[in-house]
């Protein structure tokens, strides 16, 4: 299922948790791992200066500098690289989300792994968080493969996952996330939790829906799940369905905790990307920030269905 993995790192301690997962996946799935770091953002007009992603300083880049950063990455991941068999390190110049997407597309990777947090004490943490936030959001939206975002330590090895929660809003991208989650659940033999939250604030802000109306919504959602998803499981029966009402990101987090989820899978398909709201915008961002388990964002069918071998 994972032949090629792209670990997009900021090469800072913020990505340590993600790094562990990335190297673990490489070994357990016998995959190729590319540790990928975008080090400087170039200007729009003519200039050889780039803005260093970590410090925000202006730098003039030459091949030596890129080599030096790669060398530094080697030191950062020395422990993990010791046991790694099939990994490469790469540092490039560009706009982070763009270069990650370019690389994922060029190598046709099966999974992108990213870290989500920067610690507050880091230099320029606020500025940096917004860079990471918008990068994450843009990568998640456009990548053809699943994007897994890891913010907290992940103790369970992927092969040993026992509960996978997939949140759906019945959109087209959500179908892709369902298919991929089902594929993963089958592969690792985990229980698949199909989840939908009826958004009680969705229609008109401030107006709370009546109980009957909510129940009607829940009934409709159950029918939709039956029709849309269950038929596609093809014999796989290790699943259950959960439907709740409330604020979607709160409900999915509560549900995941209840079920001791090892992974949450969602689609991410907001059309507008406002960098200033990147961290607060959609349900996915909220889930990513608060979830204690990894969150996978899947929006395209490309990697959701097993390739015919």
């Amino acid at each position: 299922m994972f032949k090629k993995i792209l670990f997009a790192t900021t090469a800072s301690p913020a990505c340590d948790n993600a790094a562990k997962v990335a190297f673990d996946l490489e070994m357990k799935w016998d995959a190729e791992l590319c540790v990928f770091h975008v080090l400087g953002v170039p200007s729009r007009g003519f200039s050889s200066f780039v803005t260093d992603v970590r410090t925000g300083e202006n730098e003039q880049i030459d091949p030596d500098y890129v080599d030096w950063v790669t060398e530094e990455m080697k030191n950062t991941y020395a422990d993990l690289l010791k046991d790694s068999e099939n990994s490469t390190l790469e540092a490039v110049i560009g706009v982070p989300h763009r270069e990650i997407l370019r690389k994922a597309r060029a190598d046709n990777v099966d999974l992108i792994i990213m870290g989500a947090h920067t610690r507050d004490e880091d230099i320029g943490a606020a500025r940096y968080r917004s860079v990471v936030g918008s990068t994450m959001q843009k990568v998640a939206k456009s990548a053809r493969c699943p994007v897994v975002i890891i913010s907290r330590p992940c103790t369970t090895c992927w092969k040993l996952f026992s509960n996978i929660v997939v949140g759906t809003d019945f959109s087209k991208p959500a179908t892709s996330s369902f298919l991929w989650a089902a594929r993963l659940a089958k592969e690792v033999n985990a229980r698949l939790h199909l989840f939908h939250a009826v958004d009680i604030h969705a229609s008109e802000p401030g107006k709370v829906k009546g109980q009957a109306e909510i129940e009607a919504h829940i009934e409709a959602a159950r029918k939709k799940i039956d029709a849309k998803y269950l038929s596609q499981l093809k014999g796989f029966d290790n699943y259950e369905i959960g439907i709740r009402e409330g604020t979607p990101y709160v409900e999915i987090l509560k549900f995941a905790r209840e079920k001791q989820a090892d992974l949450i899978v969602m689609a991410h398909h907001t059309r507008e990307i406002d960098p200033e709201l990147a961290l607060l915008g959609s349900t996915v961002e909220q889930v990513v920030l608060r979830s204690s388990c990894p969150v996978a964002s899947v929006n395209h069918p490309d990697k959701a269905i097993a390739e015919k071998s």
Binding site: S43, G45, F46, S47, S48, F49, N58, Q60
Partner: peptide, 13 residues
């Protein structure tokens, strides 16, 4: 202030 190539010349930053 950055026309004529001036934006991109490190020597004249």
């Amino acid at each position: 202030g950055g026309g004529g190539g001036l934006n991109g010349i490190g020597l004249y930053r």
